[in-house]
Design a protein around this nucleic acid. Structure first.
Lengths: 198, 198
DNA sequence: CACATAGTAGACAAATAGGTCTACTTTTGT
DNA sequence: ACAAAAGTAGACCTATTTGTCTACTATGTG
């Protein structure tokens, strides 16, 4: 992929993520990136195609970051800790190659494009589904009974998505820590050792 | 307030909630409501003022519904059940005076208006803060220790916001039930009777 | 060197945005 | 009944939107 195309995608993503997609015009992206309009329409058929490209870009960037952060911890409960610690860094702008936290780009974009049948919306769903799959993989390494796998995965995803929303809307920068506590409590309640204790 | 003004607000809300705010022009609102442009600008100074009015409208409508649903249950754990049962009805379009579920209007709007310093965004924050206050009131009626009040409130709000997001983006219509299970588990872990048991 | 590729600058078009204004009609309160 | 208030229809204005097109300019490889 050419440099210009990458520049367009990253510039578009930055502006979209900050301001919302509908609020950012093509001309603004060209002005900020310093790239000619012809070049944009040489690489993308339409604004929609550029939007889709920014979603793909962010999907890769975000998952690379999150998965690396989680996978560098040892398997098991440590990775649940790592998940929420990563969120905490994200909310508090300690991820240096991310820009200022403004919620989840996929939730935001999905909110802007109401109709669930659009391709844009489907990319957002796919991202969340993939994240859930990843969480499930981590949960499966815990000392739990297999029939609790889905339920614990759901709980953690609920807490994660809730934390992102609360961090974004209410600007509560400690929310990831609170979500982590709840997650650990739930895991503990379902864990084999807890059952053995009881 | 005049009938025309109300019509404008409800029509605008319906269109905004379905399609996103930036995606809906003034002319579309006029066309659907069948009201003249002059009348709109007689009641509102700008589109922004109309947006603010739709936010206030929804804030009142939504809280009236939710608070009534919760308050008709007896105080205590029953009201936590009622909270998540209400969410379940909302997600599954069983609230007859609401339109098709498309997530939380305040989260969606906040996502579209990135800058947290705008008045529009502040109204969204105020809504969430008020909802949290209400949840806290319900939690305070549970058989818990006072120093756990904030933490349990946070947990329930996390699960609630997470459920709204997942229901909206992934269209998982059973998510409220799962959130409820997690909430009850957390409350049970913190409850006095549980501590007495251990 | 030459030529194809990729990029630039920006005029232009068509559509749509928010918002104003005039002229006319309907409603409403006294 | 009559005057004031509220509403209608829609032309109009200006700014902005996405997208096209032309003419020109780097650039880099055979």
């Amino acid at each position: 992929m050419t440099t210009k195309k990458n520049q367009l995608i990253t510039t578009a993503f930055e502006l979209f993520y900050y301001n919302g997609i509908h609020a950012v015009g093509i001309n603004k992206i060209l002005e900020v990136s310093g790239i000619a309009k012809k070049t944009l329409y040489n690489h993308f058929q339409s604004k929609e195609e550029l939007i889709e490209a920014t979603l793909t870009f962010r999907d890769v960037q975000y998952r690379n970051w999150l998965y690396e952060r989680v996978n560098e911890a040892p398997k098991g409960i440590e990775r649940i800790h790592a998940l929420f610690d990563a969120l905490d860094d994200w909310f508090n702008n300690r991820v240096c190659h991310f820009q200022l936290f403004r919620g989840c780009f996929f939730i935001n974009t999905s909110a802007e494009f109401g109709d669930p049948s659009t391709k844009i919306n489907q990319v957002c769903v796919a991202h969340k589904t993939e994240i859930r799959r990843f969480i499930k993989t981590q949960v499966s390494e815990l000392n739990i009974q297999p029939h609790h796998l889905e339920l614990i995965t759901d709980s953690i995803q609920l807490l994660k998505e809730g934390a992102i929303t609360i961090a974004a809307v209410q600007e509560d920068c400690h929310i990831a820590e609170k979500a982590k506590k709840s997650a650990l409590l739930i895991i503990d309640a379902y864990s084999n050792s807890a059952i053995n204790k009881g």
